[in-house]
């Protein structure tokens, strides 16, 4: 696993005061680990599968109703190009960091989110891989605390890394487990 601190470069706009705490989405002394770029490919494939039906409808209309309908392909085409580019950026924005006592997960470019999960609060960890995920050899790790609003998901980890994260979390969680 290699770290990509440049992931968050250029995101400090708006913070007027310059305090040591800095940005909530890019705390100092945290090195983010990015998820596999295969996740972008997997998401693109899923998106393309979703496009099949509308494209097929437009093609059928164009063939049987009139050639004007070929222009109908512009909408899914533009959408596909935009989503293609966006997905790449979104996946690059996903990051996680294991600190001494907690795990950080962040995502989003326009709407940014960060979650801090203390190891002592972990109840269990899920690792799952759907059919598309398995084609590309990635898995997602989901962290569960006693709170349902803890939305800490790390998608797009290579299975070995996912297992390593899971075991590490489990071990650290056990060591620091406290009552509710």
């Amino acid at each position: 696993m290699d770290s990509h601190p440049e992931v968050t470069s250029g995101t400090t706009s708006g913070s007027r005061e310059n305090t040591p705490a800095g940005e909530p989405f890019d705390p100092v002394d945290v090195t983010w680990t990015r998820v596999s770029t295969k996740l972008a490919t997997a998401r693109r494939l899923t998106g393309l599968i979703g496009l099949v039906v509308p494209v097929a409808v437009v093609v059928v209309l164009a063939v049987f109703v009139g050639p004007v309908w070929w222009f109908g392909l512009i909408v899914p085409g533009v959408w596909a190009v935009w989503a293609w580019l966006l997905v790449g950026r979104q996946v690059r924005a996903i990051g996680y960091a294991e600190r001494e006592d907690d795990l950080l997960v962040r995502r989003g470019i326009m709407w940014r989110e960060i979650v801090v999960v203390p190891y002592g609060r972990l109840q269990y960890v899920d690792v799952e891989a759907g059919p598309v995920d398995r084609i590309f050899g990635i898995a997602r790790v989901q962290l569960h605390t006693a709170s349902a609003s803890t939305d800490a998901v790390i998608p797009g980890l290579p299975p070995a890394e996912a297992a390593r994260v899971r075991d590490r979390l489990a071990a650290r969680g056990q060591a620091r487990l406290a009552g509710l």
Binding site: I114, A146, S147
Partner: peptide
């Protein structure tokens, strides 16, 4: 349990 932060585009500006 855990905590988090969110930020939309307007908030960011």
């Amino acid at each position: 349990q855990s905590c988090g932060a969110t930020q939309g585009p307007l908030q960011r500006r």
